[in-house]
């Protein structure tokens, strides 16, 4: 403790000077507390990090040359496109279907809410892998798909099951239906988090029910829906790799095919990993801006974006 600290006022100090210092706090020098162990910890972590990075560049078995060679190879890029397509369809389809399931689940109709409950129960129970295989083999159970009146021979549309549910169809079906069950619960949670008074105010103003859901409740619910929703989309990106069991040309299956041929297992897995990391990073950035958009009105002033912060810092030093 320094003699001039306020807890122990020093009698020797001239009182006039002390009073002045108390009036203007900026005149006092602040001495930060010392944490020697923090320095030890920092040094330790730095050494470990350096060791890992060093080994990445010096261990030849990582075969970075092979990674670079295959990273943008045509077959890999095409497979990447398929992965993105599957993700996009399953995410959009899953959340649209999930929204309806969430509304059904909260409906006052016993039938609708039980059906939604049953759907969520069954699709959260069956492993995605099993589901994909079941959909791919559904042609064994039902050889022909027909749209008509049940119990009669009337059919408006008819086609062999295997024509409709090919590898891609089975993958889309499995991923979308699986995703919808999880999305439904996330959306329901978001809707429940919106204050009941919002529904009442909207109802008392005579706003129609559908518009109440889509224009009053959903935009507010999105604030609590978005973080878990992006969680789901990010795990869906990697979840598409399960589709390799159907031998569909998505990223992971293609990588496997290549390393089975070239025997360069580790570098090929690195290629896949790097792409998944890049997709996740892009999704993280999108998430930041989407969440920021829906935070309007929920916070008094929005904090600056990283770009705005950078720009103001550059502007400030000039």
């Amino acid at each position: 403790m320094t003699p001039s600290s306020p807890a122990a006022p020093a009698d020797t100090e001239p009182t006039g000077q002390r009073a002045e210092a108390q009036q203007r706090p900026e005149a006092l020098t602040v001495v930060p507390a010392r944490n020697p162990w923090r320095w030890v910890g920092t040094a330790l972590v730095a050494v470990v990090l350096f060791g890992i990075v060093w080994s990445l560049f010096t261990n030849p078995r990582w075969q970075w040359g092979v990674v670079a060679e295959w990273f943008t190879a045509e077959s890999v890029v095409r497979a990447l496109g398929n992965t993105l397509l599957l993700t996009a369809i399953a995410a959009v389809g899953g959340f649209v279907l999930g929204f309806f399931l969430a509304l059904m689940r909260m409906s006052s109709s016993g039938l609708l809410s039980s059906v939604a409950w049953f759907y969520i129960w069954i699709f959260r129970s069956v492993p995605l892998l099993v589901q994909l295989l079941l959909w791919y083999n559904v042609g064994y159970l039902y050889e022909v798909i027909s749209v008509g009146i049940p119990g009669t021979d009337v059919a408006f549309f008819q086609a062999p099951t295997t024509d409709i549910i090919n590898k891609f169809g089975a993958a889309v079906l499995g991923l979308t239906l699986h995703q919808a069950a999880y999305s439904a619960e996330i959306i329901r949670g978001g809707i429940l988090a919106v204050d009941q008074g919002q529904q009442e105010a909207a109802a008392s103003l005579g706003i129609p029910r559908w518009r109440r859901s889509t224009h009053i409740v959903l935009p507010q619910a999105l604030r609590s829906i978005l973080p878990p929703a992006f969680n789901e989309i990010i795990s869906l990106v990697k979840g598409t790799s399960v589709v390799y069991v159907l031998a569909y040309n998505e990223l992971f299956y293609t990588i496997q095919v290549i390393y089975a041929r070239t025997n360069e297992v580790i570098p090929m897995l690195l290629v896949a990993t790097l792409w998944y990391v890049i997709i996740t990073t892009v999704l993280n950035i999108i998430q930041y801006y989407v969440e920021r958009h829906f935070a309007r009105g929920a916070v008094r002033t929005l904090p600056p974006t990283p770009l705005q912060r950078l720009r103001s810092r550059i502007g400030g030093t000039r």
Binding site: G197, Q198, A201, A203, L205, I207, I216, R296, A298
Partner: peptide, 19 residues
């Protein structure tokens, strides 16, 4: 809903649409 527009309601907690 149509008949309700004839009856306005002001709530204790305002219930404005925050978004």
């Amino acid at each position: 809903l149509r008949r309700r527009t004839n009856v306005g309601m002001v709530f204790q907690q305002f219930n404005l649409f925050p978004h």
